[in-house]
């Protein structure tokens, strides 16, 4: 019995003829656009939010939730689902519309985003939001949470993958590297970390704040298999994620460094550190919506 939501989960990067079909690619591009548009809509309720943190990983969200991960629509607690964890929990505003779209909760909840008593806040909360596999907010815990999930799964002989989305600023947290060591030491080959390497954090350029390069060499030195990909190239990204998931010969955990642009899709937000957090007035939001609707992001 196949539990995959979408077909084609066993592609290898080495076999280029098994790339996404044109139809699949168009579908994922449309989903990434949906994520950006919904992010605009929800932040217009809160009147402040992390647009650019979502825009850098919208393609990553789309690839995981609409192609790569083993999920069942309408069954957020399906025991053998692949897990998704967000070290960069402040991008949850981009996740909630996906979870609603997959039937994990009533889409009407989205209207309550950040309002008094809402389950939906700036960070994902597993105690309130069906489909959130673990809460986050304090940066640096998520990779450890994923390690634990896979240790629990191994003992129970259950077979699922954990995908952990990490911010590049998060690389400055010591606990990430504790988790990286332990994942490699325990041979958690079904752990796939994705670093959203958008280059910026709250106080400026990541490498001006605390330098993290050479990032690929660091992960490799910690015992991980490492790949680098353009995080906006849905074809390359999805193919790589499919292959990373399908590779049962790998004994190491896998780190994918996704080179991205913070604020991707809205030119004045791109690589402008002030836009880590902000708000678009109604007129600018309408223009941004127009821009997103008229743009096909391919790399």
């Amino acid at each position: 019995m196949s539990m995959r939501q979408n077909p084609g989960g066993h592609l290898s990067v080495a076999r280029s003829h098994e790339l996404l079909s044109g139809e699949q690619l168009a579908f994922l591009q449309e989903r990434a656009r949906f994520i950006r548009l919904e992010t605009l809509r929800l932040i217009s309720i809160a009147k402040v939010g992390h647009y650019t943190s979502v825009f850098s990983c919208a393609e990553i969200f789309a690839a995981l939730y609409y192609d790569v991960m083993r999920l069942r629509k309408g069954e957020p607690a399906f025991a053998d689902r692949d897990r998704f964890l967000m070290g960069k929990g402040h991008a949850a505003v981009g996740l909630f519309p996906i979870l609603a779209d997959l039937g994990f909760f009533d889409p009407a909840w989205l209207e309550s985003y950040t309002r008094l008593g809402s389950p939906l806040g700036d960070h994902p909360d597993m105690t309130k939001v069906p489909g959130v596999d673990f809460s986050s907010g304090s940066i640096g815990h998520a990779l450890s949470n994923g390690v634990g999930m896979l240790l629990g799964a191994r003992f129970q002989q259950r077979d699922f993958n954990a995908f952990v989305l990490l911010g590049d600023g998060e690389m400055q947290e010591g606990q990430v590297w504790e988790a990286a060591l332990s994942a490699a030491s325990h041979n958690l080959s079904n752990l796939i970390a994705i670093v959203d390497r958008n280059g910026y954090q709250l106080d400026g350029k990541v490498d001006d704040v605390i330098a993290i390069e050479p990032l690929d060499e660091k992960w490799r030195a910690f015992g991980w298999e490492v790949h680098t990909v353009d995080g906006h190239d849905l074809e390359a990204l999805t193919t790589l994620l499919r292959a990373a998931k399908a590779d049962r010969a790998r004994t190491k955990p896998c780190c994918i460094i996704a080179r991205t642009v913070k604020g991707k899709g809205i030119d004045y937000m791109e690589t402008e550190p002030g836009w880590h957090l902000g708000y678009l007035g109604a007129e600018d939001e309408a223009k941004a919506r127009e821009t997103i609707l008229n743009t096909v992001i391919s790399q």
Binding site: F134, S144, N145, V147, G148, M149, G152, Q156, E178
Partner: peptide, 12 residues
């Protein structure tokens, strides 16, 4: 790492 991982283990 141990404490955060324990929380992840418990979810399973």
């Amino acid at each position: 790492n141990m404490v955060s991982a324990a929380a992840g283990m418990a979810t399973t």
